[in-house]
Simulated scan of single mutants.
Amino acid sequence: MKSLKSMKKPVIITAVSALAISGALFSQSTYAAQVTKPIQAVYNNIKIIYNGTEVPYDAKTEPFMLDGVTYLPLRLAGTALDKKVDWDGTNKRVVIADKGVPIDQSTVTALNNQITTLTQELNTAKAANTTKDATIAQLQKDNQTLKDDANKSSSSTLKDLERQLNRDYRDKNNANADITLKGDKNDITVTIELTESRWNDISSSRQESYLEDISNDILKTFKDADIEGTVKNSNNGNKLVTFEADSKGNVDLEKLSSKVDLSELKRVLLNDFDRKYNNVSIDFSVKGDSSEVTVDAYVKTDDWNSLTYYQKNRIQEDIISDIRNKNVSRVKGIVHSNENNSTLATFNY
């Protein structure tokens, strides 16, 4: 025989609702009152399962069905879902909220210990970093001191070398040059000062050899130095030549051209050669700069042929001399026939 608990059992429940009542006698006011209303609820031993586990309840909180809808108390549902359920009697409200998550004190203690350990490790690392920074700063200071000492030593050695170079090269090639060195063991600048005429009196090959000898002597003392230099006119400071030397002392020479007063040069030539030899008249055309001047001399063919071999050579040498006196490095010349512009002679220096 089935137990009464497992059988469907209709029960009459009195429900409370609010009704608004108004009438002729109370036309000026309205009030609410609790009323009861009978309903047919069916208890059918309904079970509540949450995440595979049955939620227990008692007779007061047993779920029931009404008109095909299952009803269960909010407190029972809230408990099953781990929610906090309260009744606000004043405002007639059911309040549902999340429960606070309790933290085990041992967990808190472990976390605090971990924080303490990490803080100590951080402080230790900071102290070590401070020590490293101090060490680096001291090393940088020591390194700078060594550099300063090396520069002082290099400067002293550079001055000694400068004096030696002046002793060895001042009068070489009759240059009467003054040599100055500046820089350090890695980069050395050489300045050689002499008159432009003395520099031009040195042939191009000897000029290059002169600078190579100086560079090689520098490299004997400062083998890793980069050398660059300038040859200057001691009268006005104008640059005559710039040069660079590689680690083997090979010199790359760059001659600097300057303007020559070609009109003045032509006037000098005309004055010097106006009927100087056998009453021969010579006209001139000049072009170029201080690095090289080309001169064209024009003379009648018969007049040129009337000159002796010695006179012809003397004319060419004197033309070169007049041009070289204007501090010109190289001279190229052609003697032309006035009649047909044919070449009668060529000369150069």
Rank of each mutant, 00 (worst) to 15 (best):
S106W: 10
S203A: 09
L76H: 14
K2F: 13
T189A: 14
A32P: 11
G23W: 05
G249R: 15
E62G: 06
Y57F: 15
S337R: 13
D272H: 13
N278K: 13
G23Q: 04
N174E: 12
N250E: 05
T301S: 08
Q311R: 09
T189P: 07
K332M: 10
L122D: 02
G183A: 12
D86N: 12
I218Y: 07
L139F: 11
K152C: 07
Q28A: 04
D302I: 08
A128E: 15
K266F: 13
V331Y: 04
L122F: 01
L66P: 02
Q316V: 04
T180N: 02
N173A: 05
S197F: 06
T107P: 07
D67S: 08
Y277C: 00
A345T: 09
S203G: 04
A177H: 02
V260M: 10
Q105H: 08
I214K: 15
K276Q: 03
V42Y: 06
S263D: 13
I13E: 00
Y71K: 02
K159E: 01
L270I: 13
K5D: 14
S306Y: 07
K92V: 02
T117C: 01
Y298M: 06
Y298Q: 09
G229S: 05
D88V: 06
K141T: 10
D67C: 00
V335A: 14
F222D: 15
K172Q: 06
E228R: 09
L161K: 05
S156A: 08
Q140E: 15
K326R: 09
A80V: 02
R93W: 06
V101G: 10
I96C: 04
N233K: 01
Y31K: 13
N233L: 04
D168C: 14
N186L: 15
G237T: 03
K287M: 02
V95R: 07
V101Y: 14
Q114E: 15
V190H: 13
S281D: 12
V260Y: 11
D283R: 01
E196W: 09
N174Q: 08
N325M: 10
F243A: 03
L344N: 05
T109R: 11
L344R: 07
V11A: 14
